[in-house]
Design a protein around this nucleic acid. Structure first.
Lengths: 221, 221
DNA sequence: CGGAAGCTGTCATACCGCTGTCACGTCCGG
DNA sequence: CCGGACGTGACAGCGGTATGACAGCTTCCG
């Protein structure tokens, strides 16, 4: 899952980004509105965590820009002012959720996850493809009921592939969804991670390679 | 629109199925939970009309199985008990609508239609020409149900020809669509690739040559 | 503080199958 | 009988993919 954190207080931005990364998300940070707008043009985010007080472009303006798009990210607005009025104004601008500073970090994580889930309209709480089952919230994955011990990246790759099922994802698409913008575009870490994931999934092969095209979960089991 | 009726009372099942067929829907019937589960594995339904009292698997269990999937059908639960409690329980399990027996048939039709409308559009994602089937999303191709193991170019050629069917494509058109613009115009790689594709498709011949004109998929199989 | 263990990305390497070229054979119309 | 169009087998080059080894890093724990 790809997240953009827009927050001008560097310290806070980093704390939030790190925390979300611990949850296995690929997080980019923008310290002002203009940078944020540029990044939004280039990358496809699932959720934008947006501070309302921003240098450059105001959070409100940015929020409106985002929500006007058709394939838009979900917006979680952060604000210092927690009054009911502000809440209403924020939601009017199209923010999908609202969180007042100071906030409890676990709540932020919860809301980001729930926003991501809401995006392509009501995805179920657990992903099931063939004999694979994956719970994004509890961060558990099983095959034929047997628990899998996956690393953060492996889990994220499996989740992305299962969300795409029965479709496929190219290496580039995986790199974009699972890794953040600092990823070397010439890396072969996707290949390696898929390889390691395959080993942990065991037989029969659950991930099929479509040569020169990408990877796909085989749901026939 | 594809509908599955799961109901153990044969007479009722047939009446419902016939009535829905009169509305132009494609209706399958399952008389018990296990049969239903099997059919759900194989076919993609838009709506499942589900009796709660079932032999084999209970309606509740089946409903949970359906709603946990990602590309799921909408569920209309039928029940003898029409109490508010049951209604709540049913919806908790993920049923999308609820109808108490005995019901007026027009109401059933109405609800099925409305559920189908709520569903994110079952896209006809497969190309079908004769006995050939090609799924661009999953990147699979089959003939008479048997999977074909095609290379990138072969797949692209087959896809182009199937999209053109029942028309034809000239070698030049294929070269333009499948290969990039700086392809050697004097190459015979199209001929070769079509040849290899033919071999993988097997008998009877599915690609006919129109001498000096081009190639066409023969859809009569 | 120090060491063990796990995760992650890089690199080198081996391998496999796709791909385009070429040569040659065949078919068909003129 | 000739010529063009097409089919097909052989072949070599190349690119994509898998994988083991390794190093940097973090985390955990005594």
């Amino acid at each position: 899952m790809r997240v953009l954190v827009v927050e001008d207080a560097v310290a806070l931005a980093e704390v939030v980004a790190e925390g979300l990364r611990d949850q296995g998300m690929a997080v980019d940070v923008a310290l002002d509105g203009l940078t944020a707008a540029a990044k939004l043009d280039v990358n496809a985010y699932d959720v934008v965590v947006l501070d309302r007080d921003l240098p450059g472009l105001s959070g409100d303006t940015l929020c409106e820009m985002i929500t006007r798009r058709s394939e838009r990210a979900m917006v979680l607005m952060l604000t210092a002012a927690g009054s009911a009025d502000d809440r209403v104004r924020g939601l009017t601008l199209g923010a999908d959720d609202y969180l007042a500073k100071p906030f409890h970090f676990p709540e932020l994580v919860l809301r980001v996850r729930s926003l991501a889930r809401r995006r392509p309209a009501a995805t179920p709480r657990t992903l099931i493809v063939g004999d694979l089952e994956l719970d994004p919230i509890r961060r558990t994955a099983t095959r034929r009921g047997a628990g899998l011990n996956l690393s953060v990246k492996e889990f994220a790759v499996l989740e992305a592939l299962m969300r795409a099922a029965p479709g496929y994802l190219s290496s580039e698409a995986l790199l974009e969804q699972v890794w953040d913008e600092n990823a070397d575009p010439f890396t072969n870490t996707v290949t390696v991670t898929v390889g390691r994931l395959r080993r942990k999934l065991g037989d029969p092969a659950a991930i099929v390679t479509l040569p020169s095209v990408g990877y796909r979960i085989d749901g026939r089991h």
